[in-house]
Design a protein around this nucleic acid. Structure first.
Lengths: 235, 235, 235, 235
DNA sequence: TATGAATGAGGCTTCATTCAT
DNA sequence: AATGAATGAAGCCTCATTCAT
């Protein structure tokens, strides 16, 4: 409700600035703690099994305090999702641009490095979308993601120009890679495949090879007509 | 007259056997209906948003009746999972063994044909595993799946022997394929990628090609006949 | 949510009709019990102090059962309000139409007979209105009330025609009466006035006189010009 | 030098007395602000929907500060009620005693002038009474109110003595008036009556006349001068 | 067997009040 | 005195499951 009331001025001049800022810092720190703990708990037990009270207990605070930081449990999902995408962004912006390969590796390493987390976030996003509400939040998240994708797309474009990748829109390559990584994630997470795949190390190496070759131009070798594989396919 | 022997308990005439068996048939039919309806509802709205009551209503029966068929809501998950695997089994066993490719296509077509379903089952299996309980049920499901995998593995082995696929354990190829399909599924289901991928048709074509070439022997380019991998696949 | 599912047929032919109808009867009886108990508790302690759990306990049922009968706590308010208006309607329709006075007395007796209840309903209606939602329910309640008012208005009209009441729209008289009764109610309920008014019996007699004379034509006596008091006032 | 006597604690020069008193003044001003804002918010949204935090924000202070002024939220109710009665008292004491009518008009004008407020206070008083606790506070409020009533009663007594009003205890007349005003208030506030009463202006005029004639002596028609009661009142 | 009313544990959220700074 | 983060009791509501008919 908009009570038609002006925002409070909040000029606590009688309160030492340094102390105040410490309070603020601690407040933010607590928020981080909540998010960290939530993430860990969600990953391990599934977000449905984790109650707000459990989160509060795990951080060592009261249930009500959670609601000073987040409007609802779903709001925690949103923030987690945002942070994830933001971390990714930071990662991509940090990377040395003179070494495109490392960016690539970082990106997929980031996702593959914590399969449960990646899977969790897929699920959370799905939930948020289905929930209705959160349109805005999701739009923001997607914006950040798109920016990240653009950085990667530039890379892909360079490789396409250099003839190393098939001449299809960059997002074809990106999406395909994403899909393979996602699949690998699911594999990694699946109890069944964990027991089915005996020699995991070799297998993931195999998968990595596939990922790297995937979409390579001329991977079927000696197309002399310069047409992409895709075009050939359409013959 | 054989007085010493008790008269065989009569099956009362007014309760004809055929009627009894009809009852049984109807009972089974009802079970199917519950499963079908559940599946549809779970896919569309997510299993968490669907209450047992909604399922009952959708089938036109009472809530209690559900519990005559299934011990719990999770039991429905289990049966759904089992059926899925069993259907797959049936599919693989039906297929003409003289055309290995069609088996392959059937298997992945089965999964790609209904992305939401495949995703749902991934989620359900995960849930059951995390729940503890259901060890036994899951083991059974995995057994059927393994049998299915074996059928496919035979196929892969043949192709390896014929030099068409890289010489790694068959399950490498299978798992990699599964991963790519799963990733494609996730792509398909993701709101974000649905808007990110502009030319969906071409893209999925592209992905299909990748899937088919993936793990091909000589993909680094030793095909000497100059034909694309896809054409080889079609041999 | 509209699940897109046809309403259940519900043809329990295997279930004796009489038993079924007993169940239905008991269900309705329980609903009555909930309403009765709620009304009593709300009147005595105020609806805010009464929790759904307290209501359930007072009826001797579980908390959840309440929600089989009412969608929400506010839904109980609505039903209470509806019943009140409907009871009034029944009362007015029962009354002997040959004795208009008795109808009048019944109506106001109905309200004055249980001051706390009348006050409660004023509060509940106000709450419901402020809550937003419940537009529809309130509209229905108002419809019934209007019908009741119409019955009373007829009476008033007759008295106006017979020259007994001032010639103003019937609803003027009705509303004024309503106001006085409402005020009397508040008086009755107010701790302060309960102690302020020493001789309650005489006072309420006095008030009754006022109510009956109120709006009488020519109560100021001998207006010879035949103009209503109101017109005189506007001079 | 008087060593044996401790130096009188100095009022430090840098903390001038006037500043101190300004502080006190500001503190009191703040209290007024809290009360004003609370009243406005309570009237508009209902006291239950207004949290202490909202009040604090509306005044532009911290939530904790509210509790420097008031022991509890209910304490605000008490103070509001007290102020109301005190304002009334001030009003009555200010009025020119040579014009009794104006006192009368002021009193009821005060209540009718802000229906929502009058209704709110009725509700708040009821709440406090039901709450137990606050016996003392309520007793004080009632004392002030009684004093006010006494002033009005004197007036009424004069009119009774002059034969203008029926010879019943003064509080009969006062209470009856209060009741009618209260009823008018409720009418004014009720959504239903707002739509039911089409010609509001005329109606409230009508009600006013009733209020003025109400309890008049000779209302059964013994005025021999033929003037309306209203005109008499204006004498 | 079919039913659906009844259950109650348990989840989310609100908010008056406290208290360390 | 002023602040606002922290608290936790308490409220409303959901829903899988049970059970009497």
């Amino acid at each position: 409700m908009n009570w038609g009331i002006a925002a409070k001025p909040k000029i606590p001049d009688y309160f030492p600035r340094e102390k105040e800022s410490r309070k603020v810092r601690e407040f933010k720190r607590r928020e981080e703690e909540i998010l960290e703990s939530s993430l860990l708990l969600f990953k391990t037990h599934g977000e449905d099994k984790i109650t707000v009270e459990v989160i509060a207990d795990s951080v060592g605070i009261g249930k009500g305090t959670i609601y000073k930081h987040f409007k609802s449990k779903s709001d925690i999902y949103v923030r987690l999702l945002e942070n994830y995408e933001l971390d990714l962004k930071a990662l991509l912006e940090t990377e040395d641009f003179t070494d495109p390969e490392s960016i690539w590796r970082s990106y997929f390493g980031f996702r593959m490095g914590d399969p449960e987390q990646a899977i969790l976030f897929g699920r959370l996003e799905d939930k948020l979308v289905k929930d209705g509400q959160y349109h805005e939040a999701i739009k923001n998240i997607h914006q950040v993601r798109s920016a990240n994708m653009d950085i990667l797309a530039e890379l892909v474009d360079k490789r396409i120009e250099s003839g190393k990748l098939e001449q299809v829109p960059a997002y074809f390559h990106l999406s395909a890679s994403w899909a393979l990584v996602h699949g690998a994630l699911a594999l990694h997470q699946s109890d069944y495949f964990q027991s089915y795949i005996e020699d995991k190390e070799s297998f993931f190496e195999f998968l990595l090879q596939i990922g790297m070759r995937m979409g390579n131009r001329g991977q079927s070798g000696h197309n002399q007509d310069g047409r992409s594989d895709l075009e050939q396919v359409k013959d």
